[in-house]
Design a protein around this nucleic acid. Structure first.
Lengths: 154, 154
DNA sequence: TACATACTTGACAATTATAGTAAGGTATGC
DNA sequence: GCATACCTTACTATAATTGTCAAGTATGTA
């Protein structure tokens, strides 16, 4: 029942972007350095995030990525789904899957279905704003180095 | 964010056992046939389930497995954790993991922690009894072949 | 215009986890 | 004493995931 590191990285990177952007483009190089995520790997993630219309890009020198919407309108669930493709706990819940033909009679089906809904619901109840709010406050307070996001894991 | 098939099989097998047992031992051969799960694979699962004190075994001819407790006292979450080992969505929540040292400052940590709690909470809110109740009613009604559990997936 | 920056995209390799197989052993009832 | 059925370990194939490499394209600035 593990979330891919892709998804974990994506959320961390988005939090980082959100904290350091202030409307200006942030380069992946920066995020890569701060979050200790391989640059090439980040590129793949942001390719997806852009397709998912969660970020927009600015090319050329001084370019980078910007949030496509305001923090409060970006849900963690969205980020995860965009890079993860599937959030369903079991394959037979995926759209287009026809292997589970006994759906109506399957006793366990409803459990996994319910579980999937809970997971999605929970992650959709949290926005980027929720995640950065605390860090911003601290940041303003302490004037520290601003490492709001966890670099190593989690 | 996928549950292993091990966990799915285990829950299905437990539902099957629960439905067909009535206090008597049910052999894995039977369950294997009904649920179309490889016998050797089932043996591995029940090895774990026994260690987890969810079932007890009866050796010798006519033997098999029996629920260790009554249906209403066996939670789906227990079954999953027993065969799955980890239910945490991210590694840094595992006990003994020390890689996430910024726990206190990590913005995303609490999200995964909350997610893990929801998952566990949901699966622990469902018992074997909940799953078999409906099937028993139908079974009594229809006198059908009793395929309460989904064979192919889910 | 030239160049540096930084996004864009596809292909690929290494690692790891999972699913499933195989095989042999042990206990027990008939 | 034999058949049944649990017990246990080891192994292999396959797939997914993670991460790397490389070669582009667009664009702002000097």
């Amino acid at each position: 029942m593990r979330l891919s590191t892709r998804a974990q990285y994506a959320v961390r990177a988005m939090v980082d972007l959100s904290l350091y952007s202030q409307g200006r483009p942030v380069s992946l190089k920066e995020i890569s350095r701060r979050e200790e995520i391989p640059l090439n790997y980040l590129e793949q993630l942001f390719f997806r995030l852009k397709k998912g219309q969660i970020v927009t890009s600015v090319r050329g020198p001084g370019g980078g990525y910007v949030l496509a919407r305001e923090e409060s309108a970006i849900k963690v669930g969205e980020i995860v789904v965009t890079v993860e493709e599937q959030l369903n706990p079991v394959a037979c819940l995926d759209e287009g899957d026809r292997s589970c033909q006994r759906e109506a009679r399957c006793l366990t089906h409803t459990v996994w279905q319910g579980l999937g809904e809970r997971i999605k619901g929970f992650l959709d109840s949290i926005t980027l704003e929720d995640l950065t709010r605390g860090a911003r406050a601290r940041h303003a307070d302490e004037g520290n180095n601003g490492n709001g996001a966890c670099r190593t894991a989690g």
